[in-house]
Design a protein around this nucleic acid. Structure first.
Lengths: 192, 192, 192, 192
DNA sequence: AATGAATGAGAGTTCATTCAT
DNA sequence: TATGAATGAACTCTCATTCAT
């Protein structure tokens, strides 16, 4: 019984991820999902209240997958800059390892209309530990900038965009390139 | 024969931009446009062949608006780093001055499904002069990185994301903040 | 002035005939006509009250074209069978000479919904002289059948259908074949 | 799961046949079908992929209905002329018994634009046995003509057109009339 | 739990027609 | 006369969702 369920949910979720890549979030419909996952359109409603609920739940699951193991990096017994570096590498690796999921996550983030406001709140809450790390850094005067959004932009945007651009142009990022972008981003906000 | 009512096109375009902000590109429908612009759904077809054509044309117009005046900055009689700085400021100012248009542009760029491939080609061609500037910089060994996508990510992503984030959280970016982000981005790729 | 008009009406009519062939009567729209005839959709309304009026008028004109010269054959100083033969040959020749017009005529006759009832009445009235010939034949006991519809079916249907079938299968009818079908049809209804 | 409601398909098909009679094939729209059959316009899409598919399927069903029992006549242990006579009577009876279906069939045949090319191919294949009978007749030198299209025109067109004309003028054909037309048509192509 | 059937609402689009010049 | 602009109505078709089994 359980197994059957799991396989169906799995199939539905995979269908959503694939359709998001091939047709964009707007092209994700219950009809197409049903065809791709080989289930009835009605079956999706056994697991999800409606479309928004489906995308919201999937988004949160994907978010969890992307964050998995992040705590270890955050609490590493190392210097501040080193810990930020571990965090950046963590996401870089995850984005590369789960391109379909990363693409779906970006699509939702670029278009939050598809999920509930609570989902956005919840997903923001998930980066709480990261915020703590940031506050620690500010307190220690380790950063050249103090506004969180500004720092996040300087630290994460280049790496994220590089992976995204390369994914779109079908040209994989090398570890060497990731390393250089991360180092330069860190240089841009860390004092000395 | 009847004259084209410029107010109608204007109203239609404004409706598209507003709907893209409030509901995302997927929420842009001819019905909603018509209601918002106070015209008949059929009227839009006088100006545009279909939805793809409408978004494509509007995207190119917006792109032109965003690039307007860029040439002057590119050909300024100044050093390389200074000219890159002028370019970054150019876009920062434009994005701030035309938030609705910038949002629409980002939406299309994040989801090129909605426009024709030719549109993508044409819009890419528009940044030719910028590429030239980049090549000049590489030739003069002014940059710490040589891969275009990597440099673009380091230079533009932080500024763009900051404006975007602040727009979403309804908290305007100050010129001071923009200046700091731009300077740090330039520091990240320019040698000394 | 006049010339210009004539050219436009001509262009419109030709467009209708061509569209009827390539897409069927249902595919004839003012938009397509305008594009094909290189006029404005509104121009057609200078000459025709509406779509039904346009098709009705054109149908009658085509009918006249098809009947042109029929009177001569009907009043020929020859025997009854010979005169029927002349009539059959008349239509056979016309249908072959004006395939586009014949096709349009058949389309209307198979689908009288597109024209006004008066048009049907008028076009039926045009075959009055033919009816007279038929009555003359009945009076002289020249025919094996006396019901008009039955005789018409036996006399005209084979020839008409052959031309139609061949037109559809792009294989022209030869004069020899027409001659044989006509002779056999005449044999089928004429006594001895 | 819910069972397919046979009454719904039936109602939809009847609506198509009736609309074809009253407004012609061009007047058959999903909206009108829905109103007449008392279902939602969307329901028709449960059964048919699109309009072309709907007309194609219905056409083939009608064709089967019209041919039903034809095999028995074709393989009758009787002379050639007698077997052709049986075939003609078969269709005459069917056309009279199913006027709505016959009208729809003629409409499609006069306007194959509305169905898929495969449908035309399939429906042509259905008359294979009839072709065999014809070839047998040619081989035995029983016919005065050898071209299939020409023979078909001479044999079938008069009967078909008579029924059609009478149907249009609301005056039923009698068996006596049918018998006479069939006999004369057979006379026209059979040697002695 | 699972699903095919069914549907109202709305999508994009074309149509015949009228308006204003 | 001639026309491009404009439109309400209708079109084909898809959608998210519910129903009945």
């Amino acid at each position: 019984m359980r197994k059957k369920d799991a396989r169906k949910v799995e199939a539905i979720q995979q269908a959503v991820l694939q359709l998001t890549r091939s047709e964009g979030l707007a092209g994700v419909s219950f009809g197409k999902i049903a065809r791709l996952a080989q289930v009835s359109p009605a079956t999706a409603y056994v697991y999800y209240r409606d479309k928004t609920d489906m995308l919201s739940q999937l988004y949160l699951e994907v978010k969890v997958l992307m964050d998995e193991g992040l705590d270890g990096q955050l609490s590493a017994k190392q210097g501040l800059r080193q810990r930020f570096k571990l965090v950046l590498w963590h996401f870089a690796r995850r984005f590369n390892a789960y391109p379909l999921e990363a693409n779906f996550m970006r699509a939702i983030q670029a278009n939050p209309h598809f999920v509930t406001p609570e989902t956005i709140t919840a997903s923001t809450a998930m980066i709480g530990p990261l915020i703590s790390l940031f506050e620690e850094a500010v307190a220690e005067n380790a950063l050249a900038e103090t506004d969180p959004q500004l720092v996040v932009a300087l630290l994460f945007a280049p790496m994220t965009q590089l992976i995204e651009t390369r994914y779109a142009s079908q040209r994989p990022v090398t570890d060497d390139e990731l390393g250089r972008v991360i180092t330069r981003s860190l240089d841009a906000v860390f004092i000395n």
